[in-house]
Nucleic acid binder design. Structure first.
Lengths: 138, 138
DNA sequence: TAAATTTGTTATGCAAGACTAACATTTTAA
DNA sequence: TTAAAATGTTAGTCTTGCATAACAAATTTA
């Protein structure tokens, strides 16, 4: 069974693996290196840690694949990211870039409980557009 | 002139120094150690760094005091904390403890711009209690 | 297919931030 | 006013996460 807790950094690597695999069917270390702006050496190190924790399958010079547990975890992280970004962008009216950048950091911190409440709040706001419009045109 | 950037960790120490001085007129390293759940040795190290950056006045076995720049910075951090905690607590309806704990982490991440928008949003929500009530009794 | 290029790995080092243990200083209390 | 206790400092270590440089393997291309 995979270890539950990942550092913010390892969450970023896992998220990247998941996104790339979903996009292209596979992922190479060098792509992760470019996406996350880290050295190839750092990617190797991170992939070994993720493999050791059973979130990905990986060995020396081997193809990278993601485990069921990895998929589950990655989806959780991405869901957090999306909920947070939506709040910043759609409710607060922050630019897409700034919303995304800040969401990238907050996604590693926020509790499941707050996430759920925030998600509900986003939905509630969508269902009450007058309120948000009033806020934006204050 | 003091250096601008502080790590999350040093921001926590500075915030603690400020709060304790405001509360009691002075602060001792051991109090910081207890507040932040770190060793006395870690506190010494952090205080030296804050002094080196001119956010506090401090020397071997000396009383700790906070500089003007330190006060300014601490107030910024605390303001962020309060805005974030209010949003979690008053808008989302999260418990005070969970709101405070998460705010403690998010305060080091969020941009000035998002903070300002969030602050305005909190105020706007206070001025429209019907909306928040409706959300809470969904 | 052999050479050049790209990609991946290893070894090593650095910085931040924490720890413990031992020691120094200050404070408290007998 | 000393002895004990509390507090503060230093030295050394650990972990995480990053880097560079040198080497290994894989891939591309001439």
């Amino acid at each position: 069974m995979p270890e539950a807790k990942l550092s913010s950094s390892l969450e970023d690597y896992l998220e990247c693996v998941y996104n790339r695999i979903n996009l292209n069917g596979a992922v190479k270390a060098i792509e992760i290196s470019k996406d996350l702006n880290v050295s190839r050496a750092s990617v190797t190190e991170a992939l070994n840690k993720l493999a050791q924790k059973e979130y990905i399958n990986y060995g020396r010079y081997e193809m990278i694949s993601i485990t069921e547990a990895g998929i589950k975890k990655a989806r959780e992280i991405i869901n957090k990211h999306n909920v947070i970004q939506s709040f910043f962008e759609e409710v607060l009216g922050v630019s897409s870039d700034e919303a995304a950048n800040t969401a990238c950091q907050v996604e590693h911190i926020i509790t499941e409980n707050i996430l759920e409440k925030l998600s509900n709040f986003n939905k509630f706001c969508s269902s009450e557009p007058d309120f948000i419009n009033k806020f934006h045109s204050r």
